[in-house]
Amino acid sequence: MTTFVLKRLASLVVLLVVLTAVMFLLQRVSKTDPIVAYLGRGATGPAAAQARHHLGFDRPLIVQYVRYVDDVAHGNLQMSLHTHHPVMDDLKTYLPPTLELLFTALGLSLIGALILGTVSAMRLPGAGLLRLVMVAGAAAPTFLLGQLGVVFFYRRLGWLPATGQTSRNGVPTGPTGFLVLDALFSGDWPLVMDAVKHLVMPAACLAIGPAVAIGRVLRSSLMSSMDADYTRTARSKGLRESAVVLRHALRNAASGPAQMTGLQVGFMFAGIVVVEQIFAWPGLGSYTVGAITNSDFPAIVGVSLVAGAVFVILNAAVDIFQAAADPRVALQ
């Protein structure tokens, strides 16, 4: 277990180094001038030269890279060119809302997958309709789904708010950075409800695609494990059908869906950019959009590193989960 975690950490470091190198190279290859991003379109003459010197863009490429890697290693991701804050500080601000959205969406998609997979594998009544709704939802592009949600639940029914993380000002900012949890910790029930209401629609938009993907894998692996010899043995012992499914079949069917979940997290990152735009979610997605439109490479690199790290960590968690679910799987 320890060796496994250490190995995954090592591979995480390698991934981050490769990511910085690729991003750095992309930045230099592209024709955009970071000084323009930093000072604005009118930047010329001595001011530009001074900024160029100040930011180190007049040094040889290799020196720039070494300096950059050195900075990154010390937790300094340089200055964002469009917010003019250190990228590290920006990440600290924008990452928690995004993670809150991501984890909620992940949770929703797992619940959806579990329901879809079990109901259709056991051929319970309503399976066909449920599947139709979910597949239709997954087939619709995220932006359309978001817009429809806003039109229906906000404008028509007025059940859910359309934008932001909360309708309140001056919300608590610690200790987790997740608004729902922070509100819970401060015992502010109205705020909890408010935050949850804001969270539901964007998270659901993000969750429906992965839910269908994971649910389909779960369905087929559950069907084969319900057909397996050990399930027959469990039935022949006289166990209830619910015990047969929950205790015997489900755990043996966990491996494929878990792997699919790890993959889907990657797609969720792409979806999160769109969803945050639609719902004006103050997270990394919106930050990324600002960074890309302004050729803000330090910010883009920062976001990429964070996304890469989250992806690697979640996939390591999937592997640990698989090993915990099936004693025959060895962590390596």
């Binding site: 010899d229 050990y230 043995t233 469990a234 015997h248 099936d326």
Partner: peptide, 11 residues
């Protein structure tokens, strides 16, 4: 049953 390899729950 026939196959003791598959007839017991592996997990």
């Amino acid at each position: 049953f026939q196959d003791p390899m598959t007839s017991l729950n592996p997990t």
